[in-house]
Design a protein around this nucleic acid. Structure first.
Length: 311
DNA sequence: CGCGTTTGACCAGCGC
DNA sequence: GCGCTGGTCAAACGCG
C-alpha cells in the first residue's frame, strides 16, 4: 500500500486564486472627485486593507500548514512503507537457520531455566534485582506456555534464535566460540548434513539462565564456526568480566569483539540499523497514535478524495 | 574433591 | 508401527 505514489497529498486549499499576494487581485480603487464618495472609499479602503491583511495572514498560515502537512505526510508514508517492508521482510539469516528445530516436547520449566535445580531449591540466590524482573517476565511467559498447553515451538523459538558466524582455525577442533559468557557443554552430536560434530552448550554464567548455544563448523566453509543461540540471557552481560562481548539473543543484536574486520563492522552496522528501525517504528507509532495528527490527516485526505471524486 | 567434558543411551518428533 | 534424526541426560572420566 503505497498511497503516496497514487494519491496527491496536496491539500489544494484554494489559495491559488489569490496568487502569491492578494494585493494584485484586489479590486482597483478609483479615486472620485466627490468628497462624500472619497470618504466612502476611504472607509472601504481601510476595511479592504484590513481584509487584505487578514487574507494574507490566513494565506501564509495555510501555506505553512500545507508545507508542514506535506512534509509530515511524506515522512509518514515513508515510515509506513518502511515499516511494512520490515514487517514483510524477515531476516534471511534468522529465517533460514532459525527454522524451528525438530524438538521433542519440552518442559517449559526446563527451557526457561526453571529447571529441576530451581524447583528443588538447589539454585543459588545470585540473581540481582534486574534478574528478578527478567525472571518475572519469564515466569509470565512460562505461565502462558503452561496455560496454552503447547510445546515450545515455532513462534516462541523463532523470535529468540540468532546465528553468529565466527572465523576459526580449521585445525582447531574445539567447538568453542568465545563470546564472553560462560558455557557448559552438555552434549555433542554428529548431524546428518554436516560431517563435523555439533556441540551443545548451556549458559552457566547464571544458574537459571535458559540460553543454549549450538556450535558447529560450517559445512561450506570449515574455517567458519556457526554458533546458534537460543533464548535470552536473564542476567547481566559479560562485559564486566573478561569477554568484552555482548550477545543479546533474540533481539538479533550481536556484538563480538573477537570478530574482526568486515564481519565486526557489519555486525555493528546491523546493530545501528536495528536501533534505527526501532526508532522509526516508534516514530511511526507515535504519529499514528497522535489523535490530532490522524484527525488532521484524515480530514485532509477525505477532503482531497471528495474533491477528486467530484472531478 | 569439585567442576567441566566426553560419550553412549535414551527420548520424542517426524516422515514413510 | 518403524526407522531416522536431533536434542538431552547422566555416568564415567580427566584435570587442577
Amino acid at each position: 500500500m503505497d498511497c503516496s505514489s497514487s494519491l496527491d497529498i496536496s491539500l489544494n486549499l484554494n489559495t491559488k486564486a489569490f496568487g502569491h499576494s492578494f494585493t494584485a487581485e484586489l479590486p482597483e480603487v478609483k479615486v472620485s472627485s466627490s468628497a462624500g464618495v472619497e470618504k466612502k472609499w476611504l472607509v472601504e479602503d481601510k476595511s479592504a486593507s484590513e481584509l487584505r491583511e487578514e487574507l494574507n495572514r490566513v494565506y501564509s498560515e495555510n501555506k505553512k500548514i500545507k508545507e508542514m502537512l506535506a512534509i509530515v505526510s511524506e515522512k509518514y508514508y515513508a515510515l509506513h512503507h518502511h515499516l511494512e517492508k520490515l514487517q514483510g521482510l524477515k531476516s534471511p539469516d534468522i529465517d533460514h537457520i532459525g527454522q524451528p528445530p525438530k524438538k521433542r516436547k519440552q518442559d517449559p520449566d526446563e527451557f526457561l531455566g526453571f529447571s529441576k535445580g530451581l524447583s528443588s531449591g538447589k539454585i543459588e540466590n545470585s540473581s540481582s534485582n534486574q534478574d528478578h524482573h527478567q525472571q518475572q517476565q519469564q515466569f509470565e511467559q512460562k505461565n502462558q506456555l503452561i496455560s496454552c498447553k503447547r510445546p515450545i515451538t515455532d513462534s516462541f523459538n523463532k523470535s529468540r534464535v540468532s546465528t553468529v558466524h565466527v572465523p576459526a582455525d580449521s585445525s582447531d577442533t574445539s567447538l568453542t566460540v568465545k563470546d564472553g559468557y560462560q558455557w557448559r557443554k552438555y552434549g555433542q552430536k554428529v548431524t546428518r548434513d554436516n560431517p563435523s560434530p555439533r556441540a551443545y552448550f548451556r549458559c552457566s554464567f547464571a544458574p537459571s539462565c535458559p540460553v543454549k548455544k549450538k556450535v558447529q563448523r560450517s559445512a561450506e566453509d570449515p574455517s567458519l564456526l556457526v554458533a546458534t543461540y537460543e533464548g535470552n540471557h536473564n542476567h547481566l552481560g559479560p562485559n564486566a568480566s573478561e569477554g568484552e562481548a555482548t550477545s543479546q539473543v533474540g533481539s538479533s543484536t550481536v556484538t563480538l569483539d573477537m570478530v574482526h574486520g568486515s564481519n565486526r563492522l557489519s555486525l555493528e552496522k546491523n546493530e545501528r540499523g536495528t536501533m534505527q528501525e526501532v526508532l522509526i517504528q516508534q516514530m511511526a507509532s507515535s504519529l499514528t497514535k497522535d489523535s490530532k495528527f490522524t484527525a488532521a490527516l484524515a480530514a485532509a485526505i477525505s477532503g482531497r478524495l471528495m474533491e477528486q471524486s467530484r472531478t
